[in-house]
């Protein structure tokens, strides 16, 4: 080791009196930076778990989410996230996540692949059929019901207001009344 590379001299040269700063920083560490610093863009978002509504910043590079952090600007959360919120990146980038349609036919023993457009058409066909088959015009006293009992739905508390709005609007117009979400549970 060259004389000038002696630790004590490095410490003096860099005024690193406690020996915990630049005098002991490896080249790897010196070159390391936050992965957020290389992000192409940052999207402001909101944590998807509980209803506190903590602010999140989602860092994107090459059209992929690389990091999710608390938003320090949020007056609700002041940049903090709980263990779940801090794990959000694993939620969106989970290797277990299913990204294609899976179909199980009646009495089938395994999943099959199915094209998304075909699946949507099949669901629309079944929706129209079930709506018709379970239609109720009137009750026993002749009061109007104008509804179908053949279609039910559960979910909404994890979805956006705009999504809940379309779901309620479509199902109500279809006469489907058994529309529920976690708020009942």
């Amino acid at each position: 080791m060259a004389f000038l590379g002696w630790p004590v001299l490095r410490q003096v040269a860099t005024r690193d009196w406690l020996g915990r700063g630049p005098s002991v920083t490896s080249p790897t560490t010196a070159e390391a930076g936050a992965r957020t610093s290389t992000a192409d863009r940052v999207a402001q978002s909101v944590c998807p778990y509980c209803a506190v509504g903590c602010g999140q910043r989602i860092f994107v590079r090459d059209e992929k989410i690389i990091q999710i952090e608390g938003d320090p600007d949020s007056p609700i959360s002041r940049g903090r996230l709980c263990p779940k919120g801090a794990a959000s990146e694993q939620l969106v980038n989970s290797p277990r996540r299913v990204t294609t349609v899976r179909y199980r036919r009646p009495y089938g023993t395994q999943w099959e692949d199915l094209d998304l457009a075909t699946a949507t058409d099949m669901i629309a066909d079944r929706f129209v059929q079930a709506r018709r088959d379970y239609w109720q015009e009137q009750d026993a006293d002749g009061n109007r019901l104008d509804r179908t009992m053949g279609i039910a739905s559960l979910g909404g508390a994890t979805l956006d207001n705009e999504e809940n709005y379309l779901i309620k609007k479509l199902f109500t117009a279809a006469g489907a009344i058994q529309i529920e979400n976690q708020a009942r549970i």
Binding site: C50, G155, A157, T158, N161, I179, R184
Partner: peptide, 15 residues
């Protein structure tokens, strides 16, 4: 307990 459980009550997916 859910991110928009308030919203899904205001704009209700409830019967």
């Amino acid at each position: 307990g859910h991110a928009s459980i308030q919203g899904s009550t205001d704009i209700p997916t409830l019967y």
